[in-house]
Amino acid sequence: MPLVDRRNTLEHTDGVSKDKLCLIIVWSLSALVATLAFIAWGNDLSWQFGHLNTYLFFPLLGLLAFSVMWSHYVAGTLRELMDVDQTRLTNYYRYTGYAVLTLICLHPGLLIYQLFRDGAGLPPLSYERYVAPGLGWITLLGTASLLIFLAFEFRRIYAKHSWWHFVPEAGDFAMLAIFYHGLRLGSQLRHAGWFVTVWWFYGITLTVIIARSYAKKYANKKARR
């Protein structure tokens, strides 16, 4: 085999191997963080599901949603560092994205429904009656973040507009808001335990990833001047 053809074959093989490795890592990471969220939720209930109700179930959906969205940020950074074409993760983002969209809608949706059934009315008053005094505004962080995440679903229509970049940027801050939202309101995070450490790890790495992306955007913008 000619040297050039052999080199091309090796590069092609290495590229496929690298793509597959990236896919294995990101899928495994999402599965891992989802499992950790489920374990933390189960531990909080002492694995007693006999009296499971909406109030006990809906927190799991929030933990899963944030955990998988965090893995999206890590996946994007990993793909970039491994120099993998973004199209290789299309299915990963599509399927996990559908899961996240379902979770972020059901998480507050189930709570709103149950509070209304129990006579607490509708948000924001029902939220204030559900959480401890002084924490009502933190529930609104979740509502604002949800609206931002839902707005991102219109990217197929508006992504080419000059103002669209504000939506994903708002999504970055919404992720940080959800981190704080969970830290203050999540029963799994109000008690000392291993998942508190995991949650802080999510928050710190998320902040680093977001800061890195903005630093890179600033450097690219400065280089074009």
Rank of each mutant, 00 (worst) to 15 (best):
H107K: 00
L140R: 00
A177F: 06
H107Q: 08
A37D: 04
K20Y: 02
L89E: 03
T102L: 14
W27Q: 12
L189D: 00
L89H: 00
R156S: 12
Y55A: 08
A192P: 02
L61W: 02
Y218E: 12
P133E: 03
R224C: 03
L23D: 04
L32I: 11
V33T: 12
T35L: 14
I157P: 09
T54R: 11
G136H: 06
Y93P: 10
F57V: 11
V68N: 04
H165Q: 11
W199C: 01
I204N: 02
H161A: 10
P2Y: 04
T197C: 07
R155I: 08
L52V: 10
R79G: 13
R79P: 12
F66C: 08
H12D: 13
T90Y: 13
Y202H: 03
Q86S: 11
L101A: 09
V4K: 05
G109S: 02
K160T: 14
T102E: 03
V74N: 03
V26W: 03
F49H: 07
G171T: 03
A170N: 01
A132W: 05
A65V: 08
S17N: 13
G42D: 05
L122Y: 12
D5T: 09
S71R: 02
T205E: 12
A159K: 13
L32H: 11
V100I: 15
L111F: 07
A31M: 12
S17A: 15
V196Q: 09
R212E: 10
R184Q: 14
S46G: 14
T54M: 14
A219Q: 08
D83C: 10
Y214R: 08
F149S: 01
L150N: 08
W164S: 07
A31F: 09
T197Q: 09
Y127S: 04
Y202I: 09
Y95A: 08
G203N: 03
T77P: 00
Y92P: 11
Y127H: 00
